[in-house]
Design a protein around this nucleic acid. Structure first.
Lengths: 150, 150
DNA sequence: ATTTGTGCAAATCGTTTGCATCTGA
DNA sequence: TCAGATGCAAACGATTTGCACAAAT
């Protein structure tokens, strides 16, 4: 970490990156508020991630970014609706948000409750059935469930 | 519906079928209690189904089968653990239980929140990546998400 | 100034659990 | 008999919502 200090009690975001993130949010039709910028920074400055709302909230607090859990939820959904995140449904209990919105699939490690990307190039799905009349395929999700051997 | 009336206030289950269901439960290591038999009957006497706990509970009440929601949940999980049902994770909020435990995949109709089977023969997944060291592939789920065209 | 976002706490939803009671083998 | 099931209500965890306040354009 190489952030300069500031005085508002929130984690600073570096100037250049702030600009980029601001545009990203603005392009998505979202006002670049302090909280959204901070969360975006946490989400997008360390490669592809799969986070739950709770995890991101804790991470934010740890990074001295003062946001409420409700705002984290709101923000994650706003980002998802804007196409900046993708919600991954692996098990019905917790929602995971994936910063990788390109075409790809997932490993789900059952004992650890962890999601890992699998590049689309590494799985081929063929012979997809037709979508019924009046419907179209929105997306095909492949989840490879892994468990510890024996 | 073609059930004969009885007096205990619960939906009757026909004799022959009861015997089959009893064995099915017994074979799975579950005592064939009245509630489990009734729920099994609802689940398995009308082809492959995808039900939520709540839906099954309402269906049971409608059929004059007097079970509590808690028991429905317990039963669904016991059946799942016993391999009589399969839990389908399509969206993190509700769990769907599938009476089809053979190898197959799913359509998920987004606006209707409905799950439909796709025979395994109709989708081919190839070039699966290796499972990491010490892990094995427990299952591969393919979910084809459908939405209404425009 | 006006609109949009935020924080908080309370509400909601699906699900699980503790415990007293009942039931099937 | 008696382990195992059930029902109920209360507990629970994840998520959403209502509303007063604060920040962004």
């Amino acid at each position: 970490m190489n952030h300069s200090q500031n005085t508002d009690g929130n984690a600073p975001v570096q100037g250049c990156e702030t600009t980029k993130l601001s545009s990203k949010l603005r392009d998505a039709g979202l006002r670049p508020t302090k909280q959204r910028l901070s969360l975006a920074h946490l989400l997008y400055s360390q490669g592809n991630r799969h986070v739950s709302a709770e995890a991101l909230h804790e991470e934010a607090l740890g990074a001295k970014v003062d946001v409420s859990l409700a705002t984290v939820y709101n923000t994650l959904h706003q980002f998802t609706d804007a196409g900046l995140l993708r919600a991954v449904a692996v098990e019905s209990s917790k929602t995971y948000f994936d910063t990788n919105t390109t075409d790809h699939h997932h490993f789900f490690i059952e004992n650890e409750n962890r999601v890992v990307d699998v590049p689309a190039s590494q799985i081929h799905v063929s012979d997809l059935p037709e979508a019924p009349e009046g419907m179209e395929i929105a997306r095909v999700d492949v989840i490879v469930r892994l468990r510890k051997k024996d």
